[in-house]
Amino acid sequence: MPSHAPLAASPGRVEVGVITARRRILCLFAHPSIDRSEANRPLFDATARVAGVTLVDLYAEYPTGEIDVDREQARLRGHDVICFMHPLYWYSTPSIFKEWQDLVLEHGFAYGIGGTALHGKLFFNALTAGGPEQAYCAAGYNHFTIRELLCPLEQTARLCGMVFLPPFALFGARTAVDEGRIGAHVTDWVRVLEALRDHRLDLAAAVPLTKLNADLDAIIREP
Protein backbone atom coordinates (compact mmCIF):
# COMPACT_ATOMS: atom_id res chain seq x y z
CA MET A 1 0.00 0.00 0.00
CA PRO A 2 1.59 3.27 -1.07
CA SER A 3 0.32 5.22 1.94
CA HIS A 4 2.20 2.95 4.31
CA ALA A 5 5.36 2.74 2.22
CA PRO A 6 7.50 5.17 4.26
CA LEU A 7 6.73 3.30 7.43
CA ALA A 8 7.47 -0.04 5.88
CA ALA A 9 10.78 1.21 4.58
CA SER A 10 11.98 2.46 7.94
CA PRO A 11 10.31 0.55 10.73
CA GLY A 12 13.18 1.20 13.09
CA ARG A 13 13.45 4.97 12.78
CA VAL A 14 12.09 7.16 15.55
CA GLU A 15 9.58 9.53 14.09
CA VAL A 16 10.62 12.58 15.97
CA GLY A 17 9.16 15.79 14.66
CA VAL A 18 7.29 14.04 11.87
CA ILE A 19 3.67 15.10 11.95
CA THR A 20 1.65 12.21 10.65
CA ALA A 21 -1.93 11.20 11.09
CA ARG A 22 -2.79 9.20 14.20
CA ARG A 23 -2.35 5.47 13.83
CA ARG A 24 -5.62 3.57 13.78
CA ILE A 25 -5.44 0.62 16.16
CA LEU A 26 -7.45 -2.60 15.85
CA CYS A 27 -7.66 -4.70 19.02
CA LEU A 28 -9.02 -8.16 18.31
CA PHE A 29 -10.04 -9.63 21.64
CA ALA A 30 -10.67 -13.29 22.41
CA HIS A 31 -11.57 -14.81 25.73
CA PRO A 32 -13.98 -17.73 25.57
CA SER A 33 -15.09 -17.34 29.18
CA ILE A 34 -15.01 -13.62 29.84
CA ASP A 35 -17.21 -14.11 32.93
CA ARG A 36 -14.33 -15.79 34.70
CA SER A 37 -11.68 -13.37 33.52
CA GLU A 38 -9.82 -11.33 36.14
CA ALA A 39 -7.09 -9.75 34.07
CA ASN A 40 -8.53 -9.56 30.57
CA ARG A 41 -11.84 -8.09 31.62
CA PRO A 42 -10.31 -4.83 33.04
CA LEU A 43 -7.95 -4.66 30.07
CA PHE A 44 -10.91 -5.05 27.71
CA ASP A 45 -12.91 -2.33 29.47
CA ALA A 46 -9.97 0.08 29.51
CA THR A 47 -9.28 -0.50 25.81
CA ALA A 48 -12.85 0.38 24.98
CA ARG A 49 -12.30 3.84 26.45
CA VAL A 50 -9.19 4.71 24.42
CA ALA A 51 -9.99 7.03 21.52
CA GLY A 52 -8.87 5.85 18.09
CA VAL A 53 -8.96 2.19 19.03
CA THR A 54 -11.37 -0.30 17.49
CA LEU A 55 -12.13 -3.14 19.88
CA VAL A 56 -13.67 -6.40 18.60
CA ASP A 57 -14.76 -9.27 20.84
CA LEU A 58 -14.32 -12.18 18.45
CA TYR A 59 -16.24 -14.72 20.57
CA ALA A 60 -19.15 -12.30 20.83
CA GLU A 61 -19.13 -11.52 17.14
CA TYR A 62 -18.77 -15.13 16.04
CA PRO A 63 -20.30 -17.31 18.79
CA THR A 64 -20.72 -20.23 16.39
CA GLY A 65 -17.20 -19.85 15.01
CA GLU A 66 -18.41 -18.79 11.57
CA ILE A 67 -16.11 -15.89 10.68
CA ASP A 68 -17.08 -13.22 8.17
CA VAL A 69 -13.92 -13.02 6.11
CA ASP A 70 -14.89 -9.94 4.13
CA ARG A 71 -15.74 -7.97 7.23
CA GLU A 72 -12.48 -8.95 8.94
CA GLN A 73 -10.39 -8.08 5.89
CA ALA A 74 -12.09 -4.69 5.65
CA ARG A 75 -11.25 -4.08 9.30
CA LEU A 76 -7.61 -4.93 8.68
CA ARG A 77 -7.44 -2.56 5.72
CA GLY A 78 -8.87 0.22 7.87
CA HIS A 79 -6.20 0.07 10.58
CA ASP A 80 -2.44 0.59 10.94
CA VAL A 81 -1.85 -1.45 14.09
CA ILE A 82 -3.22 -4.97 14.65
CA CYS A 83 -3.26 -6.33 18.19
CA PHE A 84 -4.34 -9.79 19.36
CA MET A 85 -5.62 -9.46 22.97
CA HIS A 86 -6.02 -12.79 24.74
CA PRO A 87 -5.04 -15.09 27.58
CA LEU A 88 -2.18 -17.44 26.67
CA TYR A 89 -3.63 -20.90 26.08
CA TRP A 90 -1.13 -23.68 25.66
CA TYR A 91 1.59 -21.22 24.58
CA SER A 92 -0.65 -19.78 21.93
CA THR A 93 -3.92 -17.96 21.38
CA PRO A 94 -7.44 -19.24 22.13
CA SER A 95 -8.62 -21.33 19.21
CA ILE A 96 -10.80 -18.72 17.54
CA PHE A 97 -7.67 -16.75 16.59
CA LYS A 98 -6.34 -19.74 14.71
CA GLU A 99 -9.58 -20.03 12.78
CA TRP A 100 -9.46 -16.28 12.17
CA GLN A 101 -5.94 -16.52 10.75
CA ASP A 102 -6.78 -19.55 8.62
CA LEU A 103 -9.73 -17.78 7.03
CA VAL A 104 -8.87 -14.09 6.96
CA LEU A 105 -5.20 -14.14 5.98
CA GLU A 106 -5.94 -15.29 2.46
CA HIS A 107 -3.48 -15.67 -0.36
CA GLY A 108 -3.76 -12.62 -2.56
CA PHE A 109 -4.86 -10.54 0.42
CA ALA A 110 -2.32 -11.05 3.17
CA TYR A 111 0.52 -12.74 1.32
CA GLY A 112 1.59 -14.09 -2.05
CA ILE A 113 0.89 -12.52 -5.42
CA GLY A 114 -1.04 -9.31 -4.89
CA GLY A 115 -1.20 -10.02 -1.17
CA THR A 116 -0.01 -6.65 0.07
CA ALA A 117 -2.99 -5.44 2.09
CA LEU A 118 -1.11 -5.71 5.39
CA HIS A 119 2.26 -4.37 4.28
CA GLY A 120 3.80 -1.92 6.72
CA LYS A 121 1.25 -2.41 9.49
CA LEU A 122 2.35 -3.11 13.07
CA PHE A 123 1.41 -6.37 14.76
CA PHE A 124 1.67 -7.46 18.38
CA ASN A 125 0.01 -9.52 21.12
CA ALA A 126 -1.40 -8.25 24.38
CA LEU A 127 -1.53 -11.37 26.46
CA THR A 128 -1.94 -12.65 29.97
CA ALA A 129 -0.04 -15.75 31.04
CA GLY A 130 -0.68 -17.90 34.09
CA GLY A 131 2.94 -18.77 34.69
CA PRO A 132 5.36 -16.39 36.46
CA GLU A 133 7.82 -14.45 34.31
CA GLN A 134 10.80 -16.46 35.52
CA ALA A 135 9.20 -19.67 34.21
CA TYR A 136 9.50 -18.23 30.65
CA CYS A 137 13.21 -18.79 30.09
CA ALA A 138 15.59 -21.66 29.30
CA ALA A 139 15.98 -22.46 32.98
CA GLY A 140 12.28 -22.15 33.90
CA TYR A 141 9.67 -24.83 33.63
CA ASN A 142 8.35 -23.35 30.38
CA HIS A 143 11.84 -23.51 28.89
CA PHE A 144 11.27 -20.72 26.32
CA THR A 145 10.84 -16.99 26.49
CA ILE A 146 7.42 -15.65 25.65
CA ARG A 147 8.89 -14.10 22.50
CA GLU A 148 10.23 -17.50 21.41
CA LEU A 149 6.89 -19.16 22.05
CA LEU A 150 5.19 -16.62 19.79
CA CYS A 151 7.49 -17.45 16.86
CA PRO A 152 4.67 -18.75 14.63
CA LEU A 153 2.84 -15.44 14.98
CA GLU A 154 6.03 -13.48 14.42
CA GLN A 155 6.68 -15.35 11.20
CA THR A 156 3.03 -14.94 10.16
CA ALA A 157 3.38 -11.19 10.62
CA ARG A 158 6.62 -11.17 8.67
CA LEU A 159 5.18 -13.15 5.75
CA CYS A 160 2.34 -10.63 5.63
CA GLY A 161 4.82 -7.74 5.50
CA MET A 162 3.96 -6.50 8.98
CA VAL A 163 6.32 -5.27 11.66
CA PHE A 164 6.20 -7.62 14.65
CA LEU A 165 6.48 -6.00 18.07
CA PRO A 166 7.15 -7.98 21.26
CA PRO A 167 4.07 -8.91 23.33
CA PHE A 168 2.57 -6.66 25.96
CA ALA A 169 2.44 -9.35 28.62
CA LEU A 170 1.07 -9.90 32.10
CA PHE A 171 2.64 -12.90 33.86
CA GLY A 172 1.32 -14.73 36.90
CA ALA A 173 -2.15 -13.60 35.88
CA ARG A 174 -3.98 -15.97 38.24
CA THR A 175 -2.57 -14.14 41.26
CA ALA A 176 -2.36 -10.62 39.80
CA VAL A 177 -5.59 -9.43 41.43
CA ASP A 178 -4.57 -10.73 44.86
CA GLU A 179 -1.16 -9.13 44.51
CA GLY A 180 -2.63 -5.80 43.39
CA ARG A 181 -0.84 -5.73 40.05
CA ILE A 182 -3.86 -5.30 37.75
CA GLY A 183 -4.32 -1.55 38.17
CA ALA A 184 -0.74 -0.67 37.18
CA HIS A 185 -0.88 -3.10 34.27
CA VAL A 186 -4.06 -1.51 32.89
CA THR A 187 -2.51 1.95 33.19
CA ASP A 188 0.56 0.76 31.29
CA TRP A 189 -1.67 -0.73 28.64
CA VAL A 190 -3.53 2.52 28.03
CA ARG A 191 -0.21 4.34 27.91
CA VAL A 192 1.11 1.96 25.24
CA LEU A 193 -2.05 2.26 23.12
CA GLU A 194 -1.93 6.05 23.22
CA ALA A 195 1.77 6.17 22.44
CA LEU A 196 1.31 3.84 19.47
CA ARG A 197 -1.61 5.89 18.27
CA ASP A 198 0.26 9.18 18.54
CA HIS A 199 3.61 7.99 17.10
CA ARG A 200 5.32 8.40 20.44
CA LEU A 201 6.55 4.83 20.77
CA ASP A 202 10.13 4.20 19.66
CA LEU A 203 9.70 1.25 17.35
CA ALA A 204 13.42 0.76 16.81
CA ALA A 205 13.95 0.41 20.52
CA ALA A 206 10.88 -1.79 21.00
CA VAL A 207 11.39 -4.37 18.26
CA PRO A 208 14.27 -6.35 19.87
CA LEU A 209 12.66 -6.56 23.34
CA THR A 210 11.32 -9.80 24.86
CA LYS A 211 8.24 -8.01 26.13
CA LEU A 212 6.92 -4.60 25.21
CA ASN A 213 6.27 -3.56 28.80
CA ALA A 214 9.78 -4.26 30.13
CA ASP A 215 10.56 -0.54 30.62
CA LEU A 216 7.97 1.73 29.07
CA ASP A 217 9.86 4.94 29.97
CA ALA A 218 12.71 3.82 27.74
CA ILE A 219 10.56 3.48 24.61
CA ILE A 220 7.77 6.01 25.07
CA ARG A 221 8.28 9.74 24.59
CA GLU A 222 5.84 11.70 26.72
CA PRO A 223 3.93 14.48 24.94
Binding site: R36, G130, P132
Partner: peptide
Amino acid sequence: RGWTPPPRGINRELDGDA
Protein backbone atom coordinates in the same frame (compact mmCIF):
# COMPACT_ATOMS: atom_id res chain seq x y z
CA ARG B 1 -16.17 -28.17 30.34
CA GLY B 2 -14.14 -25.57 28.50
CA TRP B 3 -12.01 -22.65 29.51
CA THR B 4 -12.05 -22.94 33.27
CA PRO B 5 -8.83 -21.47 34.64
CA PRO B 6 -6.40 -23.69 36.55
CA PRO B 7 -6.33 -23.44 40.38
CA ARG B 8 -4.45 -20.49 41.80
CA GLY B 9 -1.67 -22.57 43.35
CA ILE B 10 -0.78 -24.26 40.09
CA ASN B 11 2.51 -22.38 39.55
CA ARG B 12 4.11 -23.68 42.74
CA GLU B 13 3.10 -27.18 41.77
CA LEU B 14 4.53 -26.86 38.26
CA ASP B 15 7.67 -25.16 39.50
CA GLY B 16 8.25 -27.97 41.97
CA ASP B 17 8.04 -30.54 39.21
CA ALA B 18 10.46 -28.71 36.96
